[in-house]
Design a protein around this nucleic acid. Sequence first.
DNA 1: AAATATTTGCAACGATGTTTCTTTTTTTTA
DNA 2: TAAAAAAAAGAAACATCGTTGCAAATATTT
Lengths: 139, 139
Amino acid sequence: MDSIVHILKQNNLSVTEGRRRILSLFLSSNGALAHADIEKNTGSHFDRVTVYRTLQSFVDKGIIHTIPTSDNSIKYALCKDECGEGHHHDHHVHLVCSRCGNTFCLDDVVTPAVKLPHEYIVQQVEVVVKGICRSCNHK
Amino acid sequence: MDSIVHILKQNNLSVTEGRRRILSLFLSSNGALAHADIEKNTGSHFDRVTVYRTLQSFVDKGIIHTIPTSDNSIKYALCKDECGEGHHHDHHVHLVCSRCGNTFCLDDVVTPAVKLPHEYIVQQVEVVVKGICRSCNHK
DNA sequence: AAATATTTGCAACGATGTTTCTTTTTTTTA
DNA sequence: TAAAAAAAAGAAACATCGTTGCAAATATTT
Ligand SMILES: [Mn+2]
Ligand SMILES: [Mn+2]
Ligand SMILES: [Zn+2]
Ligand SMILES: [Zn+2]
């Protein structure tokens, strides 16, 4: 069975044209995608609202995760394995390339521990690095 | 001279009612402020646009800095000393309290170094911690 | 006090995201 | 496979956020 369909079924999502297309976009893209990228790449096939709802349901199911960026636009990228409904475990660093503007998950770079004064409690650490991505750096 | 007026003059900003009020809000608040907080706290005294422009000019001058949060809302907080026009040096960690919802600059907690694979270049590291703030933790 | 420079308010606009409701599509059941 | 039930998509309306251009008001300089 098609791997895209497989992922959808595994997550109890009914298989629709829109979900197939959007999930396929994520699988074939190496960087993160913004809502606008998705609208563009799916042409005028789907309503904006459908895209919003699809992204939201993917996030809910742990198929994709959101990436906060300092310019305040949300990006989305595929989760690796361990995430599921109500369980996100994306403890990696994100890179926003200041040359090409793309955003990447650095899945192998684990979020550093942050030590706060003892009056505080740390629950989650989010790290976004601004820098130059691999492909921009090699040119 | 009033310290608020002093700061404005020092930054070559003309002293207006709006700027005085907004700067004074920052000086008297211990957490970070969102645009909405400012609109609320200044009553209906100023137009939305004026608030936007004031915040923008404060950021430009290095009086305040922006704080990215994972819920994609911008917060603003006072800079400490070293920042100036075109020179922001806010290398500290930010905490979003999951109990009270407030956002704080942890001025004494320096952004940890993040080591990326050598194909990448790091330019800036942004760390946002979700956790419990001092005052919420003491209750 | 007058002239100049800067800021403000207002109105209009675009982008983003949400909600409600009806129609269409998908899934389940028989 | 056909009918019934459930889920998703599309459309329209709406809310919020943030920006821009311009005329009126305010602050600064002369
Ligand atoms: Mn990621
Ligand atoms: Mn700060
Ligand atoms: Zn790049
Ligand atoms: Zn708190």
